[in-house]
Amino acid sequence: MNKLLTFFVLIFISISCKTEGGKNNHVLPTSTGNTNKILVVIKGVDWEGRIGDEIRTTFGEHQVGLPQPETLLSVSQIDPVGYKGFIRNAKAVLIVREGEQEKITVEKNKYAQPQILVYATAKDKEGIVNLIRNRGKEILQLFKDEDVKFIQRIFNKEKLDESKFKTIKDLGVTITIPERYNLVEDTGEFLWLRQHLKSGIARGDGSNNILVYSYPLEDEAKVADNITNMRDVIGEKYIPGSKEGMYMITEQAYTPFTYDAEIDGKKAFETRGKWEVKNDFMAGPFINYTIVDKEHNRVIVFEGFTYAPSVNKRDFIFELEAIGKSLTIK
């Protein structure tokens, strides 16, 4: 009887250690690698040739709105024969290979967690070049979206208690902000939080700043065109410089870029540009999400801006992007 019981227990354990697809349900190691960085698995000769050129062109495009040129993603390469052992624990991997069918496929948490593997497959080298050229932006977005989720998961574990902010409560929104942000101003109509960049995902001198406010929706067709003007009004009213007559404005020598977006299932606009302090030398990049809340006849604005002189700022702004995309309207 004991032998029979042992037999059934072993069978149960064996079945329990399988997941869908027959993979072992063992604990995966923690992935390695930072946000906005990917590892490309491709033969060295192809990396130095047209395929590598196309990958570098696509992922090496400069992020708009930054004072210094910085690429959308940082890319490194490894030969397929070297893609083994702990190297396979990389968080974001693009695997380029030849196959019968041209396609892009995604696999998550195969060797580590969190992890995204994107396979770019085509029949020959020319096909791979065309695939990267035609669908490279799609591949890039897959990696960016996973990085946003990665940061948001971290911030969920160290979330600031937003119930203590009058503006958040009065606007009826919720947003995942890490607890290292400190209050600057909270009027009930306007919220300003600041993080000194000494710890966290974004590190360096200076600060990351978050603004949340709203204004009445008058003409939906003019919302996008009014973004710059509205942020200048807010800057003059709430964000002073070191002396009288100084306040934050949109940098006049740089035209911001505005894109269609979606926040919490609602129509929105993403604007990237540069801010400066009028009559002063302070400046930096900003990212702005302007959300059309038709149900409440208003526009809700989340803005993040960075002041970090003499250092790269891509990752600082990306952290603010992840926070902004967590905003929901109750």
Rank of each mutant, 00 (worst) to 15 (best):
201 I>V: 02
159 K>Y: 05
320 L>Q: 04
7 F>K: 08
318 F>W: 03
272 R>E: 05
294 K>G: 08
84 K>Y: 05
299 V>E: 08
96 V>M: 07
318 F>E: 12
202 A>T: 01
87 I>M: 14
203 R>E: 15
6 T>V: 14
12 F>S: 14
265 G>E: 08
41 V>E: 11
192 W>M: 09
171 L>W: 01
202 A>Q: 05
236 E>H: 03
129 V>H: 05
161 D>M: 06
65 G>M: 00
174 T>M: 10
2 N>F: 08
242 S>D: 03
200 G>M: 02
47 W>R: 13
262 E>R: 05
176 T>C: 09
141 Q>W: 03
68 Q>Y: 13
196 H>R: 10
22 G>E: 11
110 K>G: 06
275 W>Y: 03
21 G>M: 06
208 N>W: 02
208 N>P: 11
170 D>K: 15
177 I>K: 06
52 G>F: 02
143 F>A: 05
28 L>N: 01
290 T>E: 06
1 M>P: 15
264 D>K: 01
168 I>A: 13
40 V>K: 14
248 M>A: 09
298 R>F: 00
71 T>V: 05
209 N>H: 01
272 R>W: 00
5 L>R: 12
304 G>P: 05
160 L>M: 13
112 A>C: 06
241 G>L: 01
281 F>S: 09
1 M>Q: 14
45 V>M: 08
262 E>Y: 01
66 L>V: 09
71 T>I: 04
27 V>P: 03
77 Q>H: 13
149 K>H: 11
199 S>Q: 09
106 V>S: 09
253 A>W: 00
23 K>C: 08
263 I>D: 09
167 T>M: 12
125 K>M: 08
128 I>P: 10
309 P>I: 03
149 K>N: 14
281 F>T: 12
5 L>M: 14
139 I>H: 06
224 A>S: 12
163 S>M: 00
218 E>G: 06
279 N>C: 00
59 F>K: 11
269 F>N: 11
58 T>N: 11
226 N>I: 01
241 G>I: 00
299 V>L: 06
281 F>Y: 06
242 S>M: 07
261 A>Q: 10
8 F>G: 09
297 N>R: 13
238 Y>T: 02
193 L>D: 13
260 D>K: 15
230 M>H: 08
99 G>Y: 02
